[in-house]
């Protein structure tokens, strides 16, 4: 589904990703771990098409498309979703209406009819309940005045409603207490399906207690320095990232 080869990315003249390779197939869940500043969010943003990143080398292919040819919203229409590390506030923009407009924009781009308004409302309410997200937040402005945990759950709600093919969750677990973490993990697990791939970007392994990844990768110094199964996450938990960074530098 997603194939990244030798990806090199610069930000303001500084090379952040230095030849990154990653293959993700439909139905798989991948975890990308790594120390702060290693380039995890950079990778997530580049996949979503954010401006300000200079791609100086490598290939990005998704469902047979060259991702670099697609605009941000075209990638969204093609099924890429990014749950952001820092969800942004949109004052005055109603949360529920925002979500409906987004869903309809995607449906229109795919030549599908717009969603029935009542059906949509019911679906959002049900999902919000599953995520233990206060219904009042649906009526408020997008993320405005939400707590950290509420913002993250709102991201997962959007993800559930937009039903992407490739979902990237950038540190969706950070800032959540254990109950919220479990709720978010349940929400994510419900989305696992043979047609869908998930990339979990995380700093801690504890998320992986609740969401079992197929593959774990360690990103350090701009490259995937180690890939393995779930046991790699546990090893990291034990030893920290230091030994890997040293290895990468060597």
């Amino acid at each position: 589904m997603l194939s990244i080869e030798g990806l090199r990315v610069e930000v303001e003249g500084k090379e952040i990703l230095k030849g990154l390779d990653l293959e993700v197939n439909a139905g798989e869940v991948h975890a990308i771990m790594g120390p702060n500043g290693s380039g995890k969010s950079t990778l997530a943003h580049v996949l979503a098409g954010r401006e300000g990143y200079q791609i100086s080398g490598g290939k990005l292919r998704y469902l047979g498309l060259d991702l670099q040819e697609l605009e941000i919203e075209e990638r969204a229409h093609a099924g890429i979703f990014l749950a952001m590390q820092y969800p942004v506030e949109l004052p005055g923009v109603n949360n529920m209406i925002f979500l409906r407009e987004a869903l309809n924009a995607i449906r229109r781009a795919r030549g599908e009819p717009e969603i029935d308004a009542l059906g949509f409302m019911k679906q959002v309410r049900d999902k919000a309940r599953e995520l233990n997200l206060d219904e009042k937040l649906l009526k408020r402005s997008v993320n405005a005045g939400f707590s950290g945990g509420e913002k993250k759950r709102n991201e997962v709600l959007q993800m559930a409603m937009l039903a992407p093919k490739l979902a990237i969750l950038d540190e969706t677990d950070s800032g959540l207490d254990i109950d919220a973490l479990r709720i978010v993990a349940d929400g994510v697990n419900l989305l696992r399906s043979p047609e869908r791939a998930l990339i979990l970007v995380t700093h801690y392994q504890r998320l992986l207690d609740y969401i079992q990844p197929d593959r774990v990768h360690v990103l350090a110094a701009g490259r995937i320095v180690r890939s393995g199964g779930r046991e790699l996450a546990l090893e990291l938990e034990e030893k920290g990232y230091g030994w890997l960074s040293e290895e990468a530098a060597a």
Partner: peptide, 8 residues
């Protein structure tokens, strides 16, 4: 970026 990532 946020809005466009959601498809708008």
């Amino acid at each position: 970026f946020y809005c466009r990532q959601r498809g708008l």
